[in-house]
Design a binder for these strands. Structure first.
Lengths: 194, 194
DNA sequence: GGTTGTTCTTGTCCTATGGCAAGAAATGGC
DNA sequence: GCCATTTCTTGCCATAGGACAAGAACAACC
């Protein structure tokens, strides 16, 4: 199963429709450090990530980078608000590693979205799940300790450890890199022998 | 401008299409304490709120209620994941006051959604904005102090003060009601004479 | 392979918020 | 109006995580 097939899997998409969607994508390569989207730009496309790791972040009022998300393989690299509302992005999206991905531009997407019934159903399902995950994240910020959030993140995205510096992970968790360093030390020593 | 017209305003919706959408809703009344949706139920409709205030919440692992959102007038009362994915809801949605709202069931919605081009555009725009607001909330949990978050919430939804007990507001902000009580005291005294 | 910049760890002390408990105030039946 | 319940405030002490700074480890570049 390819990246695109796994991303677009949906019960209402017939094989030939899925094929049409897949064919609308164009393979693209990004190098570590490249930007998929910069704050202030209006997105004109989105990307399905086959290989690599990506980070999105915003700059807060005091100039500090706050990581808003990590995007892993078989996930979509997109600023929904910028792409669909045609407004300048408020976040930056940057490759943490070299990336292989599949690009589709807005116009092509729109045309497929409105001509293939199952595709707009897929789109709504994808948005629903994004909303759900984001809500889970908000709840986790409230109910879980920083250490629990760290462990959950690493469980879901172990590749982050290799490619993102502590400070990026820390701002995603809502703590300082100093604290994360201490949390990680406790975590390691509590695992000795396992 | 009625509640429904304000909620469904969209550049691609022609007046007669908007009218068809509006006509598909049925006025309903809820009493304070009533549930729009309970955890475990699968949503079969959503509601546009004309008058009143609503709270959504989940129960965490230790049995504590965590407020996940407040819904005010001219906003939509919905569990997106449950309604569109046809799965049991993980949250409870409850009226904090008597409410006047307009109900539309899933089947009717689906039919309009797929027959009126502008309506699915509207739906996607609504989802985009929901995602955006939720992301802003996550960022705010990281960059702002509890006191700043409280003040922002009250600015956006002053009616919450009258209708929600401290403990509901506190869990939404991610703090205890004790802390919120102290924060509010500081806030009041810092505003003496203004 | 040294130099420079970045990342990570660690120490010390500080602050925001939590936990718990008691009492005061408000609210809701009846 | 009275009682029971819930909500809100306050005090005391505990704790998680922050601020800052120094040094160690690592990486990158020439």
């Amino acid at each position: 199963m390819t990246t695109l097939q796994s991303i677009y899997r949906h019960p209402l998409l017939k094989p030939e429709e899925l094929q049409a969607i897949v064919d609308a994508h164009e393979k693209t390569v990004y190098r570590k450090g490249d930007y998929f989207l910069k704050k202030g730009q209006t997105a004109n496309e989105y990307y399905c990530l086959e290989k690599g790791l990506v980070r999105s972040y915003v700059i807060d009022f005091s100039g500090r980078e706050i990581t808003t998300g990590f995007i892993g393989e078989n996930e979509i690299i997109i600023d929904v608000m910028s792409l669909f509302q045609r407004i300048p992005s408020s976040e930056n999206i940057q490759a943490l590693t070299d990336c292989v991905c599949y690009r589709i531009d807005f116009e092509t997407f729109q045309q497929l979205y409105h001509s293939i019934h199952g595709f707009s159903e897929w789109g709504r399902a994808w948005m629903s799940e994004s909303l759900f995950r984001l809500k889970q994240r908000s709840i986790s910020m409230i109910t879980d300790s920083a250490s629990e959030r760290y462990q959950a993140l690493i469980r879901q995205h172990p590749e982050i450890l290799k490619h993102a510096p502590l400070k990026h992970i820390a701002t995603y968790l809502g703590i300082t890199d100093t604290s994360l360093s201490r949390i990680r030390k406790d975590f390691v020593s509590s695992n000795v022998g396992t």
